[in-house]
Design a protein around this nucleic acid. Structure first.
Length: 734
DNA sequence: ATAGGGTTAG
């Protein structure tokens, strides 16, 4: 027997037919909604409801919205289309859609639906609406918006709602207005475990570790029992504090109090142990975990990699049956951050080949940073193209990484183009650009950019000042540096750290104001850092001041007895004054102390692959041609009257009998020769050297740039040198 | 007449 077909009333009567509610809810089509198991089925019901005019009943329509949003075959897009077909959606339907958008990837749509509700809705938003709207504001980190919503909530008398309050705590934490979070918490008439979790996690995620732990203690004092979510936040804070003792205490606290060990909490315990550096504890716990997921494995992998145990990390990585992008990122970024950029790039290439996962922002940032370290502009530029081609959103992290990559690969112009092309610039973006200008000797421009940054109302950090002062030092801007150094504490409330003092010593020292530099060090309130003495020693080398150099070196070695750089610098200073007997004495001291000079090495990128050379290298496959080229250069240079400057010979030579040949065996010369024979005449030769360039190589590079009509960009440990037409951008001041 | 919040790896 067929079900009776209801008569369809006219739309105009509908809103008044309140007593007919039940009739439509009992409509067989509406009852089918809950038994729906796939999207196709739902679509059929949708069609039937349209045909039967059931959309005119807001309640029936809301059932359809609910099913299209909160089932395992849900689709926001579809639900929104359904919603737009409802003539008069009820508040429940509005709230469902607003909630779904709040937890979606586009929280902005939540806000626009909320605004539509304010204009078109027949009912006012209620206590179910606001938590979602606040959550969306939090996700957008839009404080203005959040405060506006908070205002409405107060006006509507909904601020005492527990859920609203919890969301507000989270909102203010997300916007880093921690005092507001705390104020909301204390003003709430009732608090539950979620309220405490919100504030603890808010602090923990925003690196306010001590505050997070403080609220954990307060929560206990108020007699609220923490749950697994609480412990995740507290463990995360503990991991950031690197406090293993406290971490172990937390672990036993969880066991003693019978807190449910969810997979997430298990992973958090694991993460805490790896962050606190105890792979033994981590391993023991890992082996005891009954349930593990890819996060557990990746956490272990990252733990080994961070401690530099790449064998263990790699073994674990290779044993994983499936890897997602985060797993790859753990390995790539660990390589990159521990000074193994070549391995980072190799892993990135492996990822490309494996097609396991698609690189995301984190992958690209890490790989770009590896390119910066190596000066591998080929790959760096390729990643930039990749970003454009794939439409990867340029966030500030990526922009910073791109600017840094182009700057450190020697293409300042491209770095500036990236900087100019974006409109969102955070303090990292500005600071990276200032650093870029600085290392290329454009100190005046760096200073100018800093004023623009001030106009843009971006608050500088201590890193901004390090970059700025270092820019001044490369360009000899003594007056400006002094000014900034004073301003940073007075105006910007940033106490100068050792690195700022080191920059200032560098600025003064280079300018020949050695006494002022010494004075500054003596008046330093901060605990003595080796870097200030290193900077002074460098200045002494430049100005050939043996006495002060000895003094600086003694102080430096007192702090860092293993600093071989100090020995090398001092020995250079002795050598420049012809004090050869002091040189050999020093070398004996070094040998006794078991110190070996860091070997000089240079990289040059040709057609996307990086070639590495060390002093006197003959391992390269085109070694013969390279030495042939070097001979040619030597002959040409001699013909124009060039005489080698041997004063810094000992900087790079260990064996006395190699001194004769040593000068043109310097790694940067090998790289230069290789560049000359492999790169086209219009391509600049980009070389990255791990130590500072010596005076003799510097003169040779200048001459080669003129005689061979080549542009050479050399990045040494300290800065960039652009050689062109016989001159260098550093104006021989480095 | 249907409802909501907080958490982990890089």
């Amino acid at each position: 027997m067929a079900a009776p077909t209801p008569t369809i009333p006219l739309a105009s009567n509908f809103s008044t037919l309140n007593n007919n509610h039940r009739y439509f809810a009992n409509h067989p089509t509406v009852q089918l909604i809950d038994r729906c198991s796939n999207a196709h089925h739902l679509k059929q019901i949708h069609a039937q409801m349209l045909r039967a005019g059931l959309f005119f009943d807001p309640f029936s329509a809301s059932k359809l919205i609910h099913s299209s949003l909160f089932t395992d075959f849900s689709s926001l897009h579809y639900a929104h289309k359904v919603f737009d077909q409802i003539p008069h959606p009820n508040l429940y339907s509005w709230n469902l859609l607003i909630r779904a958008y709040a937890s979606s990837l586009q929280p902005i749509h939540c806000i626009s639906m909320f605004i539509r509700l304010l204009h078109e809705g027949r009912e006012k938003p209620n206590k179910f609406t606001y938590p979602s709207v606040i959550k969306a504001s939090a996700k957008l980190a839009d404080l203005q918006l959040g405060k506006g919503v908070h205002g409405i909530v107060i006006k509507e008398g909904l601020s005492s709602d527990l859920f609203v309050g919890n969301c507000l705590i989270n909102l203010y934490a997300e916007c880093r207005c921690f005092d507001m979070s705390a104020r909301v918490l204390s003003s709430m008439p009732e608090r539950d475990v979620v309220s405490w979790n919100s504030i603890i996690n808010g602090f923990a995620q925003n690196d306010c570790v001590d505050e997070a732990l403080e609220f954990f203690r307060r929560m206990e004092r108020e007699g609220v029992d923490p749950n697994d979510v609480t412990m995740v936040g507290v463990l995360s804070a503990c991991g950031k504090k690197l406090d293993l003792t406290f971490g172990r205490w937390l672990h036993s606290y969880i066991e003693k109090n019978g807190i449910r060990l969810s997979l997430i909490l298990g992973n958090a315990v694991l993460d805490m142990y790896t962050k606190c550096g105890s792979m033994n504890d981590a391993r023991k716990f890992f082996d005891s975990m009954v349930e593990k997921d890819i996060i557990s494995w990746t956490t272990m992998l990252a733990g080994y990699a961070r401690l530099g145990d790449f064998t263990a990390a790699r073994d674990l990585f290779d044993s994983l049956p499936s890897k997602d992008i985060a797993t790859w990122n753990a390995l790539i970024s660990a390589y990159e951050q521990s000074g193994n950029p070549k391995e980072a790039i190799a892993t990135f290439n492996e990822l490309q080949l494996s097609k396991d996962a698609k690189p995301d922002e984190v992958t690209l940032v890490s790989t770009l940073s590896a390119c910066s370290q190596l000066g591998a502009m080929g790959l760096g530029g390729w990643i930039h193209v990749y970003i454009k081609k794939e439409g990867v959103r340029l966030n500030c992290h990526l922009v910073t990484a791109l600017i840094d990559m182009y700057s450190k690969c020697g293409d300042l112009q491209k770095a500036l183009e990236v900087f100019d092309s974006v409109d969102q610039r955070d303090v990292f973006v500005w600071s990276a650009m200032i650093a870029g200008l600085g290392m290329h000797g454009r100190g005046k421009d760096a200073v100018e950019l800093f004023s623009k940054m001030m106009e843009a109302k971006v608050k500088p950090t201590s890193v901004t000042f390090t970059n700025l002062l270092s820019a001044c030092s490369h360009s000899g801007l003594v007056k400006e540096a002094r000014e900034f150094f004073h301003q940073m504490e007075k105006v910007y409330k940033i106490v100068p750290g050792v690195e700022h003092y080191a920059c200032m010593v560098d600025v003064l020292g280079r300018a020949g104001l050695l006494q002022d530099a010494l004075e500054l060090i003596k008046n330093m309130p901060t605990t003595l850092g080796a870097s200030v003495w290193g900077a002074l020693l460098g200045a002494c080398r430049l100005h050939k001041n043996v006495e002060l150099a000895q003094y600086a070196c003694n102080n430096l070695l007192e702090i860092e007895p293993q600093n071989h750089g100090a020995y090398v610098l001092l020995s250079n200073i002795y050598a420049s004054r012809g004090k050869w007997e002091m040189v050999s004495e020093l070398r004996k001291l070094m040998k006794d102390a078991g110190l070996k000079k860091e070997p000089g090495g240079s990289l040059v990128e040709v057609n996307g692959s990086v070639h590495e050379f060390v002093v006197g290298d003959s391992t390269h496959s085109r070694s013969k041609e390279i030495y042939f080229k070097l001979e040619e250069i030597a002959v040409i240079l001699k013909s124009v009257g060039y005489v080698p400057n041997k004063s810094q010979l000992l900087q790079l030579v260990e064996e006395e009998d190699m001194q004769e040949k040593a000068l043109h065996l310097h790694s940067e010369r090998l790289a230069l020769a290789f560049g000359l024979i492999t790169l086209g005449p219009s391509q600049p030769i980009r070389i990255v050297k791990n130590l500072r360039v010596c005076e003799d190589c510097h003169s040779v590079f200048k001459l080669v740039s003129k005689l061979y009509d080549r542009e050479i960009v050399l990045r040494d440990r300290h800065r960039f040198h652009h050689f062109k037409g016989g001159c260098c951008s550093c104006m021989d001041y480095w």
